[in-house]
């Protein structure tokens, strides 16, 4: 099950910007490396007309393929589909254990999608995420930890409908209190 307020639990330390004591060399531990290649617990979502329409409304996209059933049925697509980035709302499940995140802040660096089949209203999409790679860089924000993850979206017919490779950056020292909490995941 996906906790619906995972992000709300993210503690963001504020007030002072401590100089990071970490260096790029000592950030990635063996324990962190053990997460590479391990898939998250799969989570399945029934794609409802209402949820797709709500997402399309939130992004401001009035395309009838997402919200006008009659028009979508007559189109070459033959029915309501979800916008491409709707996949972002199908949150992956948790990893097998909380990732030992060393940093306090998170940034989304980007995504690469491959779209193989439409996501249709009525589909059941199963989502699985795997950490592919981790590396560090130094920059304006101090030491930054990059995580590259691949998320696979599979429909009820067993077809992979899409993949998303997503890169997130974490940075900034955390306080002792929130060390080890897992905010980790965007998308």
């Amino acid at each position: 099950m996906v906790s619906c307020n995972r992000y709300a639990q993210l503690e963001v330390t504020t007030t002072k910007k401590a100089m990071p004591s970490t260096t790029p060399e000592n950030v990635i531990t063996d324990q962190m490396r053990s997460f590479i290649g391990v898939a998250s617990r799969p989570v399945s979502y029934e794609i409802s007309r209402w949820d797709v329409a709500r997402f399309a409304c939130a992004i401001g996209d009035a395309n009838p393929l997402y919200s006008d059933e009659a028009a979508a049925r007559e189109s070459a697509i033959s029915g309501l589909i979800a916008p491409p980035t709707y996949l972002r709302s199908l949150l992956p499940g948790p990893s097998h254990e909380p990732f030992p995140e060393p940093f306090a802040h998170i940034l989304d660096a980007g995504s690469r999608y491959r779209f193989l089949h439409p996501v249709r209203v009525g589909d059941v999409i199963t989502v699985s995420r795997t950490l592919k790679d981790m590396f560090t860089k130094s920059g304006r924000l101090g030491t930054m930890l990059f995580k590259v993850r691949e998320i696979t979206y599979t429909n009820q017919l067993g077809q992979i409908v899409a993949t998303q490779e997503t890169t997130t950056i974490t940075y900034g020292e955390r306080s002792g209190d929130d060390a080890g909490s897992d905010f980790g995941e965007i998308g």
Partner: peptide
């Protein structure tokens, strides 16, 4: 949200395509 920006950029493509084509790949950098 970066992902909201990606939704707008994808919409440029999907508005152009209508129902006559298919976006295979889409990559965005924030």
């Amino acid at each position: 949200h970066g992902a909201l920006k990606s939704a707008w950029l994808a919409q440029v493509v999907t508005d152009w395509l209508g129902d006559s084509g298919w976006m295979r790949d889409f990559a965005v950098q924030y």
